[in-house]
Simulated scan of single mutants.
Amino acid sequence: MDFAMGFSRSRQGHDAIWVIVDRLTKSAHFLPIRQTDPVDRLAQVYVKEIVRLHGVPKTDGQSKKTIQALEDLLRLCVLDFGGSWEDHIPLIEFAYNNSFQSSIGMAPYKALYGRKCRTPLTLTEVGDRQEMGATFVDETVKKVNLIKERLKAAQDRQQKYYNQKHRFIEFQVGDFVYVKVSSMKGVSRFDRVSKLSPRYVGPFKILERIGKSTYWLLLSDQMSDVHNVFHVSTLRKWISDSGKKVSADEVEIQENLRYEEEPELILAYDVRKLRSKQIPMVKVQWKHRSAREATWEKESDIRKSYPYLF
Rank of each mutant, 00 (worst) to 15 (best):
K304T: 09
L309D: 09
K185T: 12
Y162V: 12
Q12H: 12
V179I: 15
Y269N: 15
V181F: 04
S242N: 12
A43M: 03
V181M: 07
A69N: 04
R150H: 13
I89D: 08
S63T: 14
G6W: 03
I50H: 01
D241C: 11
V271K: 09
E297F: 03
T119K: 01
V282M: 00
Q155M: 05
K26Q: 09
G114H: 09
D156H: 06
I266M: 04
E297V: 02
L112R: 02
D221R: 11
D80F: 09
M106I: 03
S194L: 07
P203R: 05
E260Q: 14
R150D: 11
D270P: 06
V177R: 07
K152L: 02
D22A: 01
E255H: 10
L91A: 10
L219K: 08
V193C: 15
F81G: 11
A134F: 10
G55K: 01
Y306E: 04
D15V: 08
R75Q: 10
G83K: 14
C77Q: 00
S63L: 05
E299S: 15
Q44L: 13
S233P: 05
V47Q: 12
V144R: 00
F176M: 11
A69P: 04
G127A: 14
E297R: 05
W238I: 15
F171K: 05
F171D: 03
Q158A: 01
T124D: 12
R209A: 02
T59H: 15
I302L: 10
T36F: 02
L123C: 08
V232G: 09
D37I: 07
Y259D: 02
V47L: 03
E49Y: 06
Q278V: 13
S240P: 03
P108I: 11
D249R: 15
A111M: 07
L196W: 00
G186D: 09
L146N: 09
D138W: 00
V179K: 01
A111I: 00
I206E: 06
L265W: 08
D2V: 12
H288I: 05
A154V: 02
H88V: 14
D191Q: 14
L74Y: 06
H231T: 07
D221F: 04
V39H: 07
L24Y: 07
S240F: 07
K180I: 06
V193L: 15
L265N: 14
P108T: 04
M223G: 08
T59R: 13
G6I: 04
I210H: 08
L207W: 00
D37V: 06
S188V: 07
E208I: 05
R289E: 09
L196Q: 13
V141P: 01
Q254T: 14
I33E: 04
T140F: 00
S224Q: 11
K142S: 07
K160P: 02
W238S: 15
E86D: 10
D60Y: 06
F176R: 11
H227W: 14
L31P: 02
H88T: 11
S305K: 12
H88L: 03
S240D: 15
P198Y: 08
P57W: 05
S233Y: 11
R129S: 08
A153S: 12
I33Y: 00
V232K: 07
K160L: 09
G83C: 14
H88Y: 13
L112V: 02
W85V: 12
L207Y: 03
